[in-house]
């Protein structure tokens, strides 16, 4: 019962952060602000969902179930890299933006 409550809590927190990240992607005004939503909220969202999964399957069977941590680790490592690559590509393509790109970074 207690386990169910904890799993439910992490599931709901994770899913709501994922939703917030996607709302940010949908309604923020320009590309660079939109980049913030997915890299932060969605990453934490999936973290919450994965913690729920770890707790659920660990309580379900004897012994720890940690392989979900692998996905979380991988996403936490790659989210900043894909964000930076996307930002570089956007600067390169000169997308319309509300914030001025410093001239030395325009290539």
């Amino acid at each position: 019962m207690l386990i169910e409550l904890i799993v439910s809590f992490f599931l709901l927190v994770g899913a709501s952060f994922a939703l917030v990240g996607s709302i940010g992607l949908a309604r923020l005004p320009d590309f660079f602000t939109r980049l913030h939503g997915p890299t932060k909220a969605t990453t934490l969202g999936i973290g919450g969902v994965l913690i729920a999964s770890v707790i659920y399957f660990s309580a379900r069977s004897a012994g720890l179930s940690l392989h979900e941590a692998l996905i979380a680790l991988f996403l936490f490592m790659t989210a900043p890299i894909s964000a930076m690559l996307l930002a570089k590509a956007a600067i390169h393509r000169k997308v319309t933006t509300r914030s001025r790109v410093p001239p030395r970074f325009e290539r």
Binding site: A18, S22, T42, Y56, I71, R93, V95
Partner: peptide, 25 residues
Amino acid sequence: DDTDRVLALDTLFINTIALLVVLGI
């Protein structure tokens, strides 16, 4: 822009992963 679309796809992937994990539970 195309970069917006790729960002949307990237987020779509992450949300799909979360969906799969929830379905697994």
